[in-house]
Design a protein around this nucleic acid. Structure first.
Length: 551
RNA sequence: GGCGAUGUAGCUCAGUUGGUUAGAGCGUGGGAUUCAUAACCCCAAGGUCGGUGGUUCGACCCCACCCAUCGCCA
């Protein structure tokens, strides 16, 4: 197999709040994919960063009585800890508020400007006369001009679904100070996206996108691309625009460049070369995993920016759906707005990794975390099926054969059958059909349990002179278990590490290279995973409700 | 409001480029078993494939409209 060079990113989490289970769909999905590529022997790097700029962060720091820098340092630390504890193995985790990102953002901008893709004009915007700042739509509240609902945001009504501009709101007030906003003029800088209409028309239909995403973008392209407002006035927490005092890059300008910046930061710590990955002629594969809500930024603005600034464009954007809990949007009052940390306080992170894997596909469909289903699925598949194979046979090997496997594998056909599906399962992982991969793997687990049931080692053990047969059967089962562990390694790195310890043999390759362990000494078996306990789930929901009260 | 997507057994999901009896896992019921973390093995019951029309010899799969859910509207 030819070794591929791959650079992968997940979307940058915003540095104004904790990581929650919705975020984790994406990081777990990406991490599984990256671990799979690495296990196959490819050269694959996974970078990410905190998205640290913008008005919400500036205002939150203000409210908390700290500087934005202090806020993002604190939040960045907790994000990273959450990811680590869920087994997300970034090759680098950085911040968009970094020297690398400042340099690269300026570089991208000046290249776009030199190529004639930046223009400026004066626009009128809502302004808070007390706070002395321009107000983003989300920071203006008032009554919906259509249905009269109170307390609606400046961009749209959550009650009747109407869309409008903030100036349409009745009795509008600044959500920051409570003052009545006034209108004020300011010069803004724009990225002329329309210059890239042909480039994007081609790019979006060249196989870089899922079909649902492509459909959605076709609408945008047909409607005609507009200029993208990329500047914000001071006060703003971000990077000042070159040659434009008191003008700052809009957070969404420097956020995707944060992918490059994080990678640059990795290059500085290793002997990787930035240009090999980002130069126009790069042959490295580049993939961005994102949620379906930020498709526009990644499938329109981002390729256009890269292309206009003379960098390479992504090979694909992989969009996923949202997470619902028990069939509904996550809700703070129902206790289903669950942070990563609250989950970790009560449950094994690998339960969630497996459950998400079992439900993920390459579509943008939402996935549902149904807690009853979650418990049944994890208990049945992982504890009842997979781990059980080792559990039910290891006792015989230890007690009767001093933890040593038999000298030959007596079921080469069965072993080969387990190995033979590796191509199909690899295809599933490669195409992000993780749910399908899990189904295939569980089918093998069923087969292994059926084999044991058919051979009945507990009955053989009671017969005189049949020790060799008992030894052979149990050794086969342990070898089948090892194959299953290898298949599950991208999803369950912690469980697999413990399985490797039990097997006294690391799994370092893809399944096609596995040979049966023969005449090989195991370590004592310890329970590799315990069942999901119902009271822990109740505790998580309770704790999530408490978080709300504190907030 | 416009647009994109989703809606299949109690639950979570497969699937069909339109063609005789619609699949899996879990849950449930029954049986078997005791090696294993009340795990495993065998069998069974369960669905008018969101609704209404249409195209077709024939639609769960195509078309139109409607309803519900999710997302986007720079």
């Amino acid at each position: 197999m030819t070794q591929r060079k791959i650079l992968v990113t997940s979307a940058l989490p915003y540095a104004n709040g904790a990581i929650h289970l919705g975020h984790l769909v994406e990081y777990i999905q990406t991490d599984i994919w990256v671990r799979f590529q690495k296990q196959r022997g490819h050269e694959c790097y996974y970078v990410c960063a905190d998205d640290a700029h913008g008005t919400p962060i500036m205002l939150k720091a203000d409210r908390d009585g700290i500087t934005p820098e202090e806020l993002i340092a604190e939040v960045g630390k907790s994000h990273f800890a959450d990811f680590c504890d869920f087994g997300i193995a970034f090759d680098n985790y950085h911040s968009t508020h970094s020297d690398e990102n400042k340099t690269l953002s300026s570089l991208v901008y000046t290249r776009l400007r030199e190529a004639g893709h930046i223009s400026s004009r004066t626009i009128t915007q809502a302004f808070d006369p007390v706070k002395n700042m321009f107000l983003p739509d989300r920071f203006i509240k008032g009554e919906c001009p259509k249905c009269g609902a109170k307390d609606q945001y400046g961009d749209g009504c959550e009650v009747c679904g109407a869309n409008y501009s903030p100036t349409d709101l009745k009795n509008a007030v600044s959500a920051v100070s409570g003052a009545t906003p006034i209108e004020k003029e300011s010069e803004h800088y724009f990225f002329d996206l329309a210059d890239f209409t042909e480039m994007l028309r081609e790019w979006t239909s060249a196989g870089h996108l899922q079909s649902e995403v492509r459909n959605k973008l076709a609408e945008w392209l047909e409607g005609g691309l507009q200029q993208w407002d990329i500047s914000r006035d001071a006060p703003y927490f971000g990077f000042e625009i070159p040659d434009a005092p008191n003008k700052y890059f809009y957070v969404w300008l420097d956020a995707p460049i944060g992918y490059m910046a994080s990678f640059q930061n990795l290059c500085d710590k290793t002997d990787l070369k930035f240009d090999d990955f980002w130069a126009k002629n790069s042959d490295v594969e580049l993939y961005h995993f994102i949620g379906k809500d930020i498709i526009y930024f990644h499938a329109l603005f981002w390729p256009a920016m890269l292309s206009g600034a003379d960098f390479r464009t992504p090979d694909a954007i992989f969009a996923h759906g949202f997470l619902t809990v028990n069939g509904e949007k996550m809700s703070k009052s129902r206790g289903t707005f669950i942070t990563a940390r609250t989950y970790l306080d009560h449950l094994n992170p690998e339960y969630l990794r497996y459950y998400f894997a079992a439900k993920l596909s390459n579509t943008i469909d939402d996935i549902d975390l149904n807690f009853d289903d979650f418990s049944h699925r994890v208990n049945s598949d992982l504890v009842g099926k997979v781990v059980n194979i080792a559990s039910r046979c290891s006792g015989f090997i230890r007690k009767k054969f001093d933890n040593k496997l038999s000298e030959t594998c007596v079921e080469p056909a069965l072993f080969a059958e387990f190995i033979a599906v590796n191509g199909a399962i690899a295809e599933c992982y490669e195409h992000r059909e993780f749910g399908k991969a899990m189904r295939e793997i569980m089918e093998l687990a069923d087969k292994a349990n059926q084999y044991i049931d058919h051979k009945k080692p507990w009955a053989i053990a009671k017969e005189e002179g049949k020790d060799a047969e008992l030894h052979d059967v149990c050794s086969v089962a342990i070898n089948l278990f090892r194959i299953l562990a290898a298949y599950l390694k991208p999803v369950l790195p912690i469980l697999t590490t413990e399985a490797e310890l039990f097997l006294n043999s690391p799994i370092t390759t893809w399944i096609d290279e596995l040979q049966p362990l023969v005449n090989h000494t195991l370590n004592d078996f310890k329970p590799l995973m315990t069942r999901v306990e119902a009271d822990k789930i109740a505790a998580i929901i309770e704790a999530s409700k408490e978080t709300l009260l504190k907030a």
